[in-house]
Design a protein around this nucleic acid. Structure first.
Length: 457
DNA sequence: TCTGGGGTCCTAGGACCC
DNA sequence: TCTGGGGTCCTAGGACCC
């Protein structure tokens, strides 16, 4: 906690939905929901018009559709969000050299480093109003909510108070008056599990939290969380605004429309994800030593398996081989709804560039299997290929495919999976099977004449 | 057919080393 | 034949954030 209100928190209102409404005037004033639009999707952002129907972030899209069937459901255009976010960050950095982005739509600004005459409440209030007007200009009309206070914690709480399009400046010395009546869940880091633990000992508000001793909180919540919560309850927060933090891990994951049971398909999906991760590592000049796979089973049980290489890699073949090997130990017979691959233990350099090629080091690939025979003779690695179309060009409801057993309609495509509903002797709407995009078993396909189009179930 | 995707941080236990 | 003790690395899981 500083003596003056020198920390500003800015939060763009309903950001993804607002960008969509900005770019598509027909959506303005209407409910817009951005998120996963498949059968297992969840809401990322709902416009305020959609929130009026009870649609919320993290709600399943299925439930959102039930509450607000007439909303526009969009899967998101992250390039547009990134560009808009960059414009806002540029604006903030023109105000203060010390800006800490928290996500695409949120950032802290250290006003002590800004060119302000002083940090009086009146001065920072005028500055914040000007800033909000500037955000509107550089974003083409998006609104931001802003909080200003003597700490990160209170500034973030404050920015939420008058959403959307609001500004709250908390005068130094009044922080505890503001916080005490509030529910503990306003504290960042207090989620459902912590709320429940606190509820069981009768703690609901921050005033209640102030009554619990620090030792008791540490016993209940662990060392780090306990000490932090005790401090925050009394608005004690010295955390600095930190410019750019370094990336610690890179990962790709996917939830599939139907649970996966075919191990070969899982392997080919992991291989594809490993290639995506490795490509992103290379693009950012990074490499990492620890490969992790994530497997979510049919019942939502989530397993992680990891292994650490002797030296960092950005080679998709190495990541893929290790990922497939980690899968070997897992029982996936009940079905898998999510697969993911990640790399952590990042270094911003690749070891072989400093110490020669990794093949010179007998230990370099020790934990993984030896190089595949088809790779051994390649003197020059092929250039990084562009990301393959995850639908493989298969169009749901449009294409007919054959495998060795018969013919079927393409029912879904995406994330490297083609789902096919096969015809049987009894019914034209038979069993569903999934294949990897590019599976040679599915090379014969054709476009049916319009009168053969299947009707949607 | 409840429950995304990309991250961060913390905890706890075991291996290993001095 | 009695189990110290600290530090670091690795692995697995959980909570949380937007």
């Amino acid at each position: 906690m500083r003596a003056q209100a020198s920390v500003l928190h800015l939060d763009l209102d309903a950001f993804f939905a607002a960008v969509e409404q900005r770019d598509k005037p027909s959506l303005r004033g209407k409910p817009v929901v951005v998120g996963g639009i498949g059968g297992r999707g969840v809401v990322s952002t709902a416009s305020y018009e959609a929130r009026a129907y009870g649609v919320r972030s993290a709600m399943s899209t299925r439930e959102a559709r039930a509450r607000c069937p007439h909303a526009a459901y969009l899967s998101g255009r992250f390039d547009a969000y990134r560009a808009t976010s960059a414009a806002v960050l540029g604006l903030l950095r023109s105000c203060s050299p010390l800006v800490e982005p928290l996500s695409l739509d949120e950032a802290f600004v250290d006003l002590a480093q800004a060119r302000l005459a002083d940090l009086d409440v009146a001065t920072v209030t005028a500055f914040a109003e000007e800033l909000r007007a500037s955000v509107r200009e550089v974003t083409g009309g998006l609104t931001a909510s802003v909080g200003v206070a003597s700490s990160k914690f209170v500034a973030k709480v404050a920015s939420d108070l008058e959403k959307p399009d609001g500004l709250v400046v908390v005068p130094p010395g009044t922080e505890q008056d503001l916080l005490r009546p509030m529910h503990v869940s306003v504290i960042p880091g207090v989620g459902p599990a912590t709320v429940e633990r606190l509820r069981r000992v009768g703690v609901h508000t921050i005033a209640d939290l102030q009554q619990i001793s620090e030792d008791e909180l540490v016993r209940m919540l662990g060392k780090a969380h306990g000490h932090l919560l005790h401090d925050l309850a009394f608005a004690r927060d010295d955390r600095q605004v930190e410019a750019q933090r370094e990336t610690k891990s890179v990962s790709v994951e996917g939830t599939y429309e139907q649970d996966l049971t075919d191990r070969k398909l899982m392997e080919s999906l992991l291989t594809r994800q490993a290639a995506d991760v490795a490509r992103r590592l290379r693009k950012n000049g990074m490499s990492g030593r620890t490969v992790t796979i994530k497997v979510r089973l049919y019942d939502f049980t989530t397993l992680n398996r990891s292994a650490t290489l002797p030296s960092p890699t950005d080679d998709e073949a190495v990541v893929a081989r290790l990922a497939r090997r980690l899968l070997e130990d897992l029982d996936t017979s009940g079905g898998v709804r999510l697969l993911g691959v990640g790399v952590s233990g990042l270094a911003d350099w690749v070891q072989e560039e400093l110490f020669g090629h990794e093949d010179d080091d007998p230990e370099a690939d020790a934990i993984a299997e030896p190089p595949a025979p088809d790779r051994a003779g390649a003197a020059v690695p092929p250039p990084a290929d562009p990301p393959a179309d995850p639908t493989g060009g298969y169009r749901p409801g449009m294409d007919v495919v054959h495998d060795e057993h018969g013919r079927g309609w393409v029912w879904g495509s995406g994330k490297g999976v083609v789902t096919v509903r096969f015809e049987t002797a009894e019914t034209p709407v038979g069993p569903v099977r999934s294949f990897a995009v590019g599976d040679p078993a599915l090379t014969r396909w054709q476009h049916p004449p319009p009168d053969e189009m299947p009707t949607d179930p």
